[in-house]
């Protein structure tokens, strides 16, 4: 018996990625890791606030002159913004489409309810929505300065202090940073599984890395409003 020869063509890489649940999860994993790398850099950069207004504002200015004189003013920054925007959009759209599918795949619920998955796992969808809303608020607050109390361009130190001198600024930020920690905790480990890096041997190290990253990010980000509230930064 001869085997049938395949004559149909496989779809392109893009189509097979976006057309499959496994592929769409791969898109989510890669875009999530891009955002995670940015978050680590962002958190470390934020810590410069502890060295005072001069150093923090100079660092913020350097972010705009990065890559000069090869690049023009703010080009590198805009490059980062474009990559991040693409990552956020792909991550969000894939999450929305996969969630719709997941909910449709379980149309009737069990009469006997019980919860077993971890809190971080259960809150991925709501956590993601909270983070998306936070990003919008955060950009309006400290990038466009639309809703900032101080709103002085080129003086991010003073703007940050103004934000964390309001109760709502602190509240929104603290909730979002807890959400980031929970999201990263399940997200990083999940991304490793989706990209096929996970196995029984590496599981402990991957989980430890996910927890470490989540904790470091939340603690690092939260340290800034706490410092403003306690008067260490001001």
């Amino acid at each position: 018996m001869a085997l049938a020869t395949r004559t149909d063509r496989r779809p392109s890489l893009t189509r097979s990625l976006w057309g499959s649940t496994v592929g769409k999860k791969t898109v989510m994993a890669v875009s999530g890791l891009i955002m995670l790398m940015y978050l680590v850099a962002h958190m470390l950069g934020n810590l410069k606030i502890f060295f005072g207004s001069g150093e923090f504002n100079a660092y913020a200015h350097w972010l705009r002159t990065m890559g000069e004189p090869l690049l023009h003013y703010e080009w590198a920054l805009w490059g980062v913004r474009v990559v991040l925007l693409a990552a956020v959009v792909l991550h969000g759209v894939a999450a929305y489409q996969l969630s719709r599918r997941d909910i449709a795949a379980r149309p009737s619920k069990y009469a006997h309810k019980r919860r077993r998955t971890s809190y971080a796992t259960r809150t991925m969808r709501w956590g993601g929505i909270i983070l998306a809303l936070f990003i919008a608020w955060h950009l309006l607050d400290l990038t466009t300065l639309t809703v900032n109390e101080n709103a002085q361009p080129g003086r991010p130190y003073e703007n940050v202090v103004a934000t964390f001198s309001t109760w709502y600024g602190n509240a929104v930020y603290l909730v979002a940073m807890l959400a980031v920690g929970l999201h990263v905790r399940h997200g990083f480990w999940s991304a490793a599984q989706t990209l096929g890096v996970g196995n029984a041997r590496r599981d402990r190290i991957l989980k430890a890395t996910a927890n470490g990253l989540a904790l470091a990010l939340t603690a690092g980000f939260v340290s800034v409003p706490v410092a403003v509230m306690t008067g260490v930064v001001g």
């Binding site: 649940t21 999860k25 599918r101 997941d102 449709a104 998955t117 796992t121 991925m124 399940h186």
Partner: peptide, 8 residues
């Protein structure tokens, strides 16, 4: 549905 690695 897709996998969200809940482990259930």
């Amino acid at each position: 549905g897709g996998c969200t690695l809940t482990g259930e």
